[in-house]
Simulated assay, not measured.
Amino acid sequence: MIAKQPKPKTCRNAECSIKFVPQRLGQAVCSPACALATKDVNQQKARKSLAQVERKEIKVRKEKLKSRSDHMKDAQQAFNEFIRWRDRSAGRACISSGRPLDWSGNQTDAGHYRSVGSAPHLRFDERNCHAQSKQDNRFLSGNAVDYRIGLIARIGLAAVEALEADQSVKKYTIDELKALTAHYRALTRELKKGEAA
């Protein structure tokens, strides 16, 4: 009886990839050197995937440790970034001074007409927040008089008076804050894609 010759295989070492005839059952590489190289590659892949799993677990643990105020900061940051991108995409000038805004650096704020401290229920109201120069927002305390003039020109007197009259109370839950963060990040991504195109 004639023994069957094993079929040639391709070496599994990505750097080698030569054809060889296996000497043993289950042999996947052509030489011990290729076996060591493949083992090193597999160990590196395993380390990378383990590191990714650990990073995901750390992210989940950090998320669980976040307080309501941490979620509020995340939502406010996402909202403010959206406001800056909204007004940047529309080519708008500073709401209070009317001067062109510097989008290249960190010179533009998302300024609230009614401040977050005095009207926290309006912190995520898009009518109440517009791109504003740092000079006007921080050093001129929001430049409220000129802000009102610019706001009337942008959204109308009736909408401004509705904002000024709004004294409602709003307490956001953690789930609402998470939803707001996700919503405004998605809107910002869309605006960025639109500008890149």
Rank of each mutant, 00 (worst) to 15 (best):
V41A: 13
T38N: 09
T38E: 11
K48V: 11
N42L: 14
Q43A: 15
W85G: 01
P6V: 04
K56P: 00
R68V: 11
V53G: 07
I83W: 01
R61Q: 15
Q5A: 13
W85F: 05
P32F: 01
Q23C: 04
P8G: 07
V21H: 05
S49V: 13
Q43C: 04
E15T: 09
H71T: 05
N42Q: 15
Q44Y: 02
Q23G: 02
A28I: 11
N13M: 03
K19L: 13
K64H: 12
E63C: 07
D87V: 05
L50D: 13
E54I: 09
A28D: 08
I18S: 05
C11Q: 04
P8D: 06
P8S: 10
L65W: 07
T38I: 04
Q23F: 02
R88A: 05
P32T: 08
G26Q: 08
E81R: 13
A75H: 09
K73D: 14
A51F: 03
A51W: 05
F79V: 05
R86H: 03
R12A: 13
K39Y: 10
E15M: 02
E57D: 11
R24T: 15
C16K: 02
E63W: 01
A46N: 09
S67H: 06
I58W: 03
D87P: 04
C11Y: 03
V53C: 00
V41F: 10
F20M: 02
V21W: 04
C30A: 02
F79L: 07
F79P: 06
A33T: 07
R68T: 12
A75P: 09
K48S: 06
Q77V: 10
R88M: 12
E57H: 12
V60R: 14
G26P: 02
A75R: 08
R68H: 15
L36P: 00
V53L: 10
F20G: 03
E63L: 08
F79Q: 05
N80Y: 04
K59C: 07
S17R: 15
N13V: 00
C16Y: 01
A46Q: 15
K62L: 14
R84D: 08
V29I: 00
D74P: 09
K56M: 13
K39W: 06
C30M: 06
K64L: 14
R68W: 15
L25Q: 12
K39Q: 12
A75L: 08
D74I: 06
V29L: 01
M72N: 14
Q27C: 04
A33P: 00
I58P: 00
A35D: 02
K56A: 12
L65Y: 08
E57N: 11
S17D: 00
R86I: 03
K73C: 11
S31K: 06
P8F: 07
C34G: 01
R61F: 08
K59S: 14
A37W: 01
N13K: 01
E54T: 10
Q23W: 04
K62N: 15
A51K: 10
Q76T: 09
R84M: 03
Q5F: 07
